[in-house]
Every structure is written in structure tokens, then in C-alpha cells.
Simulated assay, not measured.
Amino acid sequence: MTQDTLSEAEYDAITDAAAHWCMRLHAADCTDDERRAFKQWHEAHPLHAFEYEAMLEIWDVAEHLPRPESTVVAPIRQASRSWRQYAVAAGVCALALPLAAYTGWNLGWLPDSYQHFTATDNVRQVTLSDGSQLELNLNTDLTFSNYKDERRVTLKKGEAFFTVSHDTSHPFVVRAGEGRIRVTGTRFNVWKYEDQVRVNLIEGSVLVTSNSALPGDGLRLGPAMQARYKQGDYMPQISQTYPGDPSLAWRSGKLVLDNLALNDALPLINRYLDKPLMLADSSTGSIRVGGIYNIKELNNLANTLPRVLPVYLTRNKEGNPVINPIPQKPPKS
């Protein structure tokens, strides 16, 4: 295999290898030796990395395919494969064959369009294939798939402001963490960090559930309302927002901390950081912090905290900055 020109057979072999590695790295029994072998394969040729990234996007689409319940499939190569591994194979075939893709669209199994967006160092505005407008905050990663019965966004990480094209017959669903947000046409913001999700509604209405596996569409939000949930929550927590709420300050390049305890402030800060800030102990989390910060300069925030708070910084073995409280001197008797 030359570096400059590849035959059709060589391209096919790379695609097959990318599909194999995609399935193996997602398998529960993937070994350290296999991960090392994948790393060597991934770095051996630029096309390997390109084809693997393309296969990951197919994997994301396959996540939404229905799980087969009664279909019996003969074993191929391995004794057993998960339904999702077969979905990847089905997705590859369906995306490659127009007739299969058309059938998959009519059954609601496959999208007729798929988009992947990221924003790293700058806020980014994008338009989805349905005409909806999105604004992506820094360090955001999401995908959009247009299915026959609904439009689906998966927010992998970060934050996005949505202005959704109105279509009552074609609901718009955002998957974030274990929950989902269901709308037909509205304006709202979704923030996700690790397993925490926060939804702010600006206009219209949305239905929010904290666990997509539960029956029903969840709780309804009206304008100026917020929903929060995290992994394991049975129901989202609903609250009213107030005029001047700082949740959307990121759209102006700012992070506003309104006298928050560090326990609440760190998730808002850490999603912007290369190395997240850690707390030395639970009592440190009760220290309060405020201020307005430029979201592009938050990596410098750790060094400024000891100037404004009674804390000092150390680093743990992973290199993360750790916030430690300065012991208070006992009052003189």
C-alpha cells in the first residue's frame, strides 16, 4: 500500500478494518493488546484515521436503530455480537445502497440526512438541514439526524442555543445525558457537563424527561423556566428563572457567577478547562465565588482564585489543580 495512490481493494480493506476496530473498541471485552494494536493501525496511514472517524459517525446513527427482538441472525466470525454491532453493519449497507436506505427511511430506522458539528475555540452558528438555527458554545459536540417521524439532536458535550423550525408533525428531540427534550418549534438552551444537564426555555414550550427509558414525555416547561437533571434522577428539577438570568451570558462571550458556592460554580467553569478544578474536601465546596469572566480566558481562572478567595492551589497526581481552604486562625481570647 503506497502513501500516494491506493487501489479500490486497498480502500475497501481500510473501510473493513475501520468497521472492525469501531466494533472492537466499543466491545466490553476489548483488551489492552487490542487497543495498542488499534493505535498502531490508526497512526499507520492518514486514511485510517479518516475512515475510523467516518465509522464513528455511522456508529452514532446506529445508536438510534431499533433493537431486533425476534430476528435470528447466524453467527459471523464471533460467537455473539450485540444488536448495535449488527446495526453498524446494517447502517453501512443502508447508507451504501439507495433502495435499502429508502426502505430504512420509510420504516423510521434510518435518517435521510446526518450532520456532525463541533465548536472548539470560538462560538459557532450552524444551520441544520431542517432549517433550524443553532449557536454552539466553546467545547461543544453534537450530531443531527433527520428521521421520518422526528428530528434528533444528540448533545455529546457542551452547550447549544436552539431556534427550532416549527413543524408539529415532525417533532424535534434533543438527547442529552440520560434524558431528552421534545419540542415542535421554540427557542431554548441546553447545557451538558459530564452527567449534568440544564435546560432553559426562552420561547414556546418543551417537554423534559430525565430518563428516556421511562414512559411518557416528561414535564412541560413554559417560558422563563429551567429544568435540571443528572444521571439517576427519576424526574428533572423545575424552577423559575428571573430577568437577567446569567445562563445565556455565554452568547456574549461571558460566564457570570452570581455568588455561587464552589460546588455549583465548578461544573460551569470546568467545562471550559483543559484540566478541571477539583475540591480538596466537601467543606471547600461551600466557599462562594462571584464575578464576570471571559469564556476564552477561563484557563487562567485557577491562578486568580487565591487572590479573591481564602484558598490556595495544589495539584493531584493527574495534574489537576486542587482548591484547598486556608485554615482560619482561631479568634484571640
Rank of each mutant, 00 (worst) to 15 (best):
A17K: 06
Q231C: 04
N303I: 10
T154F: 05
P75Y: 14
A90N: 06
T163H: 06
T143L: 01
T143S: 14
L155A: 03
H45K: 04
R152Q: 07
A224H: 14
S205Y: 11
R81T: 01
K230L: 11
V61W: 07
L268V: 08
T186Y: 10
P321R: 12
A90C: 08
T2G: 02
S129G: 15
R182Y: 09
E69I: 10
I292R: 06
K254P: 02
A224C: 08
G179C: 10
S165F: 07
L262K: 12
A302F: 10
A101T: 04
I326L: 13
N294L: 07
W21T: 04
A101M: 08
E159I: 00
L207T: 15
H48Y: 07
I202E: 13
P98M: 01
R35Q: 06
I287V: 04
Y102C: 00
L221T: 08
A90I: 01
E69S: 09
L219G: 05
M235T: 15
E297W: 05
N316V: 03
N189Q: 10
Y86N: 11
V153R: 02
L248H: 04
N324E: 13
N139R: 15
N263Y: 13
D141T: 11
L309P: 00
P310V: 00
W191M: 14
D167E: 13
G158K: 11
K157A: 08
D4K: 02
R315E: 14
G91S: 03
S210G: 07
A62N: 02
S210W: 00
N300M: 02
A27H: 12
W105C: 00
Y86Q: 07
L248D: 15
Y52H: 06
E318H: 05
L107E: 04
N211G: 13
L142F: 15
L97H: 14
S205R: 01
N122I: 12
S282Q: 15
L138F: 11
R175G: 08
I295T: 08
V256R: 06
G218M: 12
K148F: 11
Q85G: 01
G285V: 07
D121I: 05
V88A: 10
V256L: 11
P327A: 02
A100N: 00
T163C: 06
A224F: 13
T241L: 14
R251T: 14
G319E: 12
R36S: 09
S7V: 09
D167C: 06
N300F: 03
Q231T: 06
D29F: 04
N299W: 05
L6W: 12
D130W: 12
N263M: 11
Y293S: 05
V153M: 06
I58V: 11
D12F: 01
T143F: 03
V197W: 12
D195H: 04
N139E: 13
P68T: 08
G253F: 09
P111G: 06
A9M: 10
A13P: 00
C93A: 07
A19M: 14
D112I: 01
P98V: 01
V183P: 05
K317H: 11
K296L: 01
N146S: 08
E10G: 01
E297F: 09
W109R: 00
T314K: 02
T127H: 10
L248K: 03
W83L: 07
L268T: 05
